[in-house]
């Protein structure tokens, strides 16, 4: 009897599978236009994002970057060396600290400015203000670094030092970009100046999507400006803030340009991040570098980045009733 039931179950499963397969094929046929449109993106992703991952193999070799040259398998030797290097540890923690702090500060500032901009009634003034705060984003990091090096110069030509000295706050100019205690705060300030405006776009878009009826209803109920912000605007922004934070968290390990243009030899222990660490391994070696080692550092960076995203996804599901980002 039970044998018969098993046979019947097997038959049913086979029928279901076949039906599913046909259904999938039918769906593909029905939406073939979309699949064709997706194809270029798929190929590009495959060619430029997935196939290069094969290169991670070099992290376990002594690859010297020469086609045809013998590549020796060294196992975990590159990783062993990496974890024994004080400079790597310093670069790793600097990357996390600088990147995550920058992300939190920039997001907070962007939200704050979006809220202020949203309150501006005069549309022309609002547009002018928006344009002005977006502009720094379009300056290259090299130009930005040059401008701030001049503003923060320790000589009498540095605007900040000139103000501080002439107002009697300090006696002698501070070399902001060459002192460990000052470099990090300056880095955050410069990043805020450059990227906060651009970060407001997505928040302003969310704010413009909130129905005016809701505010009107709140006003009728006697809510003031602050209460409307607290009970309507902030909850509406909450999902966007989390999404922006999570999406940007995936990029925290990729810090390079902004650090590289602002750092110098005197602040290396404070400012060296993983990407600049790889750069110095490559260009300070005085010879053809060990690309196996730099690949190992790169691979570690990617793995950490991936773990961060997964943690955020998990946190997102917990906080947002099971809604993750991946």
């Amino acid at each position: 009897m039970s044998k018969k039931i098993d046979e019947q179950t097997q038959k049913n499963l086979a029928i279901l599978k076949e039906a599913n397969r046909r259904s999938t094929l039918r769906r593909i046929k029905k939406y073939r236009g979309f699949y064709v449109m997706f194809l270029p993106v798929f190929i590009l992703a495959l060619v430029f994002h997935y196939i290069p991952m094969i290169g991670n193999y070099y992290a376990f070799t002594d690859y010297k970057g020469i086609a045809g040259a013998k590549v020796n398998w060294v196992g975990l030797a590159n990783f062993t060396k990496m974890f024994s290097m004080a400079a790597f540890h310093s670069a790793f923690w600097n990357t996390l600290f600088l990147s995550i702090t920058k992300l939190l500060l920039n997001t907070f500032a962007a939200v704050l400015i979006s809220l202020f901009l949203n309150e501006i009634v005069n549309i022309h003034f609002k547009k002018i203000a928006q344009t002005i705060i977006y502009l720094p984003h379009f300056m290259s990091w090299v130009v930005t670094a040059s401008v701030f090096t001049l503003i923060l110069s320790p000589t009498s030509e540095g605007m900040v030092n000139q103000i501080l000295v002439s107002s009697g706050i300090i006696d002698k100019g501070i070399y902001f970009l060459a002192e460990d205690t000052w470099w990090k705060p300056m880095f955050f300030v410069i990043n805020l100046w450059k990227d906060t405006g651009w970060g407001t776009i997505i928040f302003l878009a969310t704010l413009s999507g909130i129905s005016p009826d809701v505010y009107e209803a709140a006003s009728i109920d006697g809510a003031g400006r602050f209460q409307k912000m607290r009970y309507i605007t902030m909850p509406a922004l909450q999902n966007t803030i989390i999404t922006v934070l999570i999406l940007n968290l995936a990029k925290v390990m990729n810090l390079f340009e902004s650090v590289f243009v602002l750092q110098n030899d005197a602040v290396l222990s404070t400012s060296n991040v993983l990407q600049t660490y790889v750069y110095y391994q490559t260009f300070n070696s005085g010879t053809i570098p060990n690309y196996g080692y730099t690949t190992a550092v790169g691979l570690t960076k990617s793995v950490v980045g991936c773990i961060l995203v997964l943690i955020c996804n998990w946190a997102s599901k917990k906080v947002r009733d099971g809604r993750g980002i991946v």
Binding site: L268, N272, S285, N290
Partner: peptide, 10 residues
């Protein structure tokens, strides 16, 4: 030199 000079020079 390939192994150490990057860190050493820095």
């Amino acid at each position: 030199m390939q192994q150490y000079n990057g860190d050493l020079t820095t």
